[in-house]
Measured scan of single mutants.
Amino acid sequence: EADPRLIESLSQMLSMGFSDEGGWLTRLLQTKNYDIGAALDTIQY
Rank of each mutant, 00 (worst) to 15 (best):
E1H: 12
E1Q: 14
E1A: 14
A2Y: 12
A2P: 13
D3K: 05
D3S: 08
D3R: 06
D3A: 05
D3W: 05
P4G: 10
P4L: 10
R5S: 06
R5G: 06
L6S: 04
L6G: 03
L6K: 04
L6M: 08
L6F: 07
L6P: 03
L6A: 08
E8N: 11
E8Q: 12
E8D: 11
E8K: 14
E8C: 09
E8T: 11
S9C: 13
S9R: 05
S9L: 07
L10M: 07
L10G: 01
L10A: 01
S11Q: 12
Q12H: 11
Q12I: 15
Q12K: 15
Q12G: 06
L14D: 04
L14P: 01
L14I: 13
L14K: 12
S15H: 11
S15W: 05
M16N: 04
M16H: 06
G17S: 03
F18Y: 13
F18Q: 01
S19I: 11
S19N: 15
D20T: 01
D20F: 02
D20Y: 01
D20A: 02
D20H: 00
D20L: 01
D20G: 02
D20R: 00
E21G: 06
E21Y: 08
G22V: 03
G23P: 01
G23Q: 07
L25E: 00
L25P: 00
T26A: 08
T26L: 04
T26V: 05
T26W: 03
T26K: 05
R27N: 09
R27Q: 10
R27K: 12
R27L: 10
L28G: 00
L29Y: 00
Q30Y: 08
T31H: 14
T31D: 15
T31Q: 15
T31R: 14
K32A: 10
K32I: 10
K32H: 14
N33Q: 10
N33C: 09
Y34A: 04
D35E: 08
D35R: 02
D35N: 10
I36Q: 03
I36K: 03
I36D: 01
G37D: 14
G37M: 15
G37I: 14
G37N: 15
G37S: 12
A39K: 01
A39P: 02
A39W: 03
A39E: 01
A39H: 01
L40I: 10
L40C: 07
D41S: 11
D41L: 15
D41A: 14
T42E: 15
T42C: 15
T42K: 08
T42R: 05
T42Y: 15
I43R: 01
I43Q: 02
Q44Y: 15
Q44M: 14
Q44C: 12
Q44L: 15
Y45V: 15
